[in-house]
Amino acid sequence: MAMSLGFVVGILGVVILSHAAYSTVQYRGLLKIMEEEFPGPPLIVVIELLLGLVFCMWAALTVPGTFLSIHPHSEENRIVSLPDNLDFMIFNHRARVLPVEMDLKLKH
């Protein structure tokens, strides 16, 4: 859920950025008609760019995934969920009735 939220925020940021670019293009066109120099983008575009930057930053930090702990003994890396039917598990097998080789060797 958080991932999809970040994704939507990122798309919103990109849309805001493209709108800012479009506004700047139109502003340049207006300046060209009035034959003035480009002093820098208007304030509203700068605000839009900052907003888009913040949104995209949010997306960049949330969308790629969460960090996983690298400590082998940390809480997240430990398997703590055992199955519920442990009482019914049987670990016997037929090798139990065969003679154990190690004991034979020790007797010699």
């Binding site: 950025l17 700047t24 983008p41 995209c56 997306a59 790629p64 995934g65 960090f67 690298i70």
Partner: peptide, 28 residues
């Protein structure tokens, strides 16, 4: 897990440099 964390860092950085490049271009 370390590898996966590095991948996350790499994705974040690439995306942010693309967005930063677009913003720097618009600002002129």
């Amino acid at each position: 897990n370390l590898q996966s964390n590095m991948k996350v860092i790499y994705y974040s950085r690439t995306f942010m440099s693309i967005i930063g490049g677009i913003i720097a271009g618009i600002l002129g």
